[in-house]
Amino acid sequence: MIPALKLGKYSSKEIEERAYQKLEILGLRDQALKPASKLSGGQQQRVAIARALINDPHIIMCDEPTGNLDSKNSAIVFDTFKDLTRSFGQTIIAVTHDEEFARNSDRVIEMRDGEIL
C-alpha cells in the first residue's frame, strides 16, 4: 500500500481495496497479512509486482524479475506479465538473463557490452 499512500491520490480505504485487488490478480489475496519473511521467493516477487501495479502505471520496469526464482515461479511471473499487458494495456520493460523469459517475450532487444546486437 505504501506507493499508493505516498501518491496521495486515494483514501486509505480505497488504497486497501486496491491492494487486495492487485494481490487477487496475482493469486496472493489470502497471503496479504503475512510478514514478508513467511512468504516464498515467488510469492515475494509477486507482492513486488502488486506493489508496482497499485498506482496503475502505464509502464512497469523490471530488473531480473525472475532472477532468483525456480522455473515454476518464473512461469507464473511471466504469465502474470502477459496477462497484465493484455488485460490492462500496461507496457513491461524487463532486463533479464533468463533466455526462456526473453524468448517468449513480445519483443527482445539483445545487448552486449553496451551495444545493441
Rank of each mutant, 00 (worst) to 15 (best):
N73G: 04
T85N: 15
L69P: 00
G27N: 05
T66E: 07
D79Q: 15
G8L: 01
T80N: 11
K13C: 03
L23N: 09
A32S: 07
Y10M: 15
G67M: 08
D56Q: 07
S74I: 04
D79C: 11
M61V: 15
E64S: 10
T80I: 12
D70C: 10
I54W: 07
Q45F: 10
E64L: 04
A36W: 00
Q43N: 05
Q44K: 15
L84E: 07
S71F: 10
Q44L: 06
G41S: 10
K13P: 00
S71W: 02
I76Q: 11
L5M: 12
A52M: 03
S71E: 13
I15D: 05
C62N: 04
G8W: 01
E14Y: 01
I15H: 02
K22V: 07
I25H: 03
I49H: 00
S71P: 02
L69N: 01
N55S: 05
L23C: 11
A52Q: 03
K13L: 09
K82M: 12
R29H: 10
G8N: 03
G67K: 04
T80D: 09
E17T: 09
S87K: 13
D79H: 11
G67R: 04
D30C: 01
P65A: 15
L23V: 11
Q45K: 14
K22D: 06
Q31H: 14
R51M: 07
A36D: 00
V47A: 09
G8S: 06
Q31M: 14
L7T: 01
L39D: 07
N68D: 11
S74T: 14
A4H: 03
L33C: 05
S37D: 08
A52K: 00
T80L: 15
M61K: 07
V47D: 09
F88L: 02
K6H: 13
G67F: 01
K13N: 08
L7G: 04
Y10Q: 11
K22F: 02
G67Y: 03
G41Y: 07
R86Y: 02
S37R: 02
T85Q: 15
Q21G: 02
P3R: 01
Q43V: 10
Y20M: 13
T80F: 05
D70Q: 05
A50Y: 14
Y20D: 11
E24D: 15
K72Q: 05
D70T: 07
N73L: 03
D70K: 04
N73F: 00
P65F: 12
L53R: 06
I54L: 06
I59N: 08
R46H: 05
K34L: 09
S11M: 08
P65R: 08
Q45L: 11
S74F: 08
A19C: 13
P57G: 05
A32K: 02
P3Q: 06
I25L: 14
A19E: 04
I54V: 15
I15G: 07
I49N: 02
G67E: 11
E16G: 15
I25E: 12
F81E: 00
D83I: 03
